[in-house]
Design a protein around this nucleic acid. Structure first.
Lengths: 229, 229
DNA sequence: CGGAACGTTGAGTTCGGTCAATGCATGTGG
DNA sequence: CCACATGCATTGACCGAACTCAACGTTCCG
């Protein structure tokens, strides 16, 4: 496998400190793949044979139980999944599907574990990535357990606004039904939350969001860095 | 600080592969402390100056927002907290309090980060510990998002039964109010769930639980290794 | 021009939370 | 030893939040 194909990930935080020799060992058995939208890349319960790194596109992690389904997180370019399963050599806890056309690099889990043993810088990068994922999971749990659904929606909009550089007008990044699942509510309820947030100076038309009164919205949402980062 | 004081943790998975030299560096600035019940050891939002390792006793991790509070997890002997904050040098996301008299070892976060850089075996142990915590957090989120409250209670009882060697009679390990918070419900609702589970062959008297019909309970709970491990 | 998927809205129901009263166990001080 | 206070657990009544189901409008595609 020519290393040139992987130049696009060489500079990612996960590999930036990695020795050239280690990097070559990582990409030796790796391959790049393009997936169409709505393709399942991983199914929960299956063994974690590859670490996945997203080059472009977007991917949803979700879980199912007894016919119910919930979104766990949305990933984009440069994100990885599912590192913990790779490290522990255990089955996936979540399934993954593409939301749009996506380009993904797959690295055999064994290679990850091997390089991890021999390259301290790579090990450090892995740990930081894992710690970040863990803290994100804790924040998500706090969001679900401590907030009512309109509060979760309000804080989600504030986060989106922030990601868009603080503009008062921006687009929802995914279908509303996906956002609803992610926020732990039904699509119907998300609609009602949007309707209710009109009184807080928010208007939603299709994918487009207008925040007309940031102060009122913020006062209602009570955003907190220990939940919303 | 005499190394003898720390012999009790030398054999923990986190340190079992660590070189003697590294271990000495870790315990040099460390200290052991005994805390009475209901003592706060950490407050969310504060900087993570120490990694905590529980020698004995039990500790609750919890979070607050807008006057509301929720239990995030219960820890016991040999568990650590809060590793991710130590690694990333960021504030705690959760507060910690003792539930009973507890003995805890505190290691300065800087020492952890330093030894991590120089001892590959220790780094590996850290990563495994972190990956375990992360997967536990994911399981917990799935439990909350995918299950109704009586289902969470039923599965919690099955897990307790398992921890007690499969005996059909065992004691709840904490106050019911704490268990309720942990399971994402009110104490009143936990009572009602217990009442409802009578029809599934469960009787709860005070701290004592009797599982009289494991098959019926299991059929209702639908336990899943990807949630309940 | 259908047909399909999504989003919204309304009506009805269920689940879970709030509040208040009671019971029970524990602990304290007289 | 008793009287009393305190805190937890339970129960019932009530309320509100969120889910279900159904209907309808819209958009997007074939």
């Amino acid at each position: 496998m020519p290393i040139a194909k992987f130049e696009e990930i060489r500079s990612l935080p996960l590999f930036s400190g990695t020795r050239d020799e280690s990097f070559r060992a990582l990409v030796r058995g790796a391959y790049v793949q393009n997936f169409p939208p709505h393709t399942e890349l991983a199914v929960e319960g299956e063994p974690a044979d590859f670490l996945h790194i997203i080059v472009s596109g977007s991917i949803e992690l979700f879980s199912q139980w007894q016919g119910r389904e919930t979104s766990m997180s949305f990933l984009g370019a440069n994100d990885t999944f599912i590192l913990a399963a790779t490290i522990k050599d255990r089955p996936y806890l979540m399934s993954a599907r593409t939301l749009e056309k996506s380009r993904v690099i797959l690295i055999p889990s064994e290679d990850i574990r091997e390089v991890f043993e021999n390259d301290a810088e790579f090990a450090k990068a892995i740990v930081i990535e894992l710690a970040t994922c863990y803290r994100q999971a804790i924040k998500s749990a706090k969001n679900i357990k401590l907030r009512a659904s309109p509060e979760r929606v309000a804080n989600y909009l504030l986060k989106l606004r922030c990601k868009n550089g603080g503009a008062d007008c921006f687009a929802l990044p995914f279908e509303k039904r996906r956002i609803a699942e992610f926020l732990g509510m039904t699509p119907e309820n998300l609609s009602r939350s949007f309707a209710m947030l009109k009184s807080k100076g928010v208007s939603v038309n299709g994918q487009e969001v207008h925040v007309e009164d940031i102060d009122t919205l913020t006062e209602f949402a009570h955003p907190n860095p220990l939940i919303d980062s």
